[in-house]
Simulated assay, not measured.
Amino acid sequence: MIIRDGHLGDAPAVLAMFDGAVAWLASLGRTGQWGSEPFSVDAARVERVTSWATSGGMRVAEFDGRPAGCLVVGPAMPYVPPAPEPELYIQGLVVDPRFHGRGVGAALLERARAEAAGLGIALVRVDCYAGDDGRLVAYYESQGFTRTESFKVGDWPGQVLESRLPVATG
């Protein structure tokens, strides 16, 4: 697996990853996170992925040249309380269901931590869907994140999590 910077040409592959994830979640009866409609047919979601692809914050994991996952870093989402210190914020993370179980998500999260450490930033935060059985929150906890603030956007329950890094000083 390699992880590289994303670009505009990755937008269709990333939309396909989200479409696959939505279909997989829907097949499990878990439509609370992203609904049941593909991202690729929702203009606002297409615009968001396209914006991520041109933001400089997109990272794409590949297996044998095939996109397997995507992570996006950038400013914290507007519904999340601001951090009291510099942070690296994970705006999005998706793994193509065909690559589940291969450590793609873990590798992308480790890449975010490495980027933060390289910038001298000790705080990495992410928010995620906190409904249903809480499996997504538990996933981030299994990756070394700890819960901070809970929030709601309408009826959508969310959870902010953080990972603190040791940062070398002067």
Rank of each mutant, 00 (worst) to 15 (best):
H7A: 13
L8E: 12
G9R: 15
P12E: 12
L15H: 04
A16K: 01
F18L: 15
D19S: 10
A21N: 08
V22S: 02
V22N: 00
W24C: 09
A26L: 00
S27E: 15
Q33H: 11
G35P: 03
V41I: 15
D42M: 15
A43W: 05
R45Y: 04
V46W: 00
R48C: 07
R48D: 08
V49H: 03
G56W: 07
R66L: 12
A68Y: 06
G69D: 09
C70K: 06
P75K: 12
A76I: 10
Y79A: 15
Y79M: 10
P81Q: 04
A83C: 12
P84G: 12
E87G: 09
L88D: 05
G92Y: 10
V94G: 02
D96G: 04
P97Y: 05
R98T: 15
F99R: 00
V104Y: 02
E110R: 15
A114P: 06
E115H: 08
A117K: 12
R125P: 01
V126I: 15
C128E: 03
G131P: 02
D133Q: 07
G134E: 00
V137C: 03
Y139I: 05
Y140G: 08
Y140S: 04
Y140F: 12
E141Q: 12
S142D: 12
G144I: 01
F145G: 03
T146N: 10
T148Q: 14
E149L: 07
K152H: 13
G154N: 03
W156K: 02
W156R: 07
E162M: 06
S163F: 08
L165D: 06
T169L: 11
G170W: 14
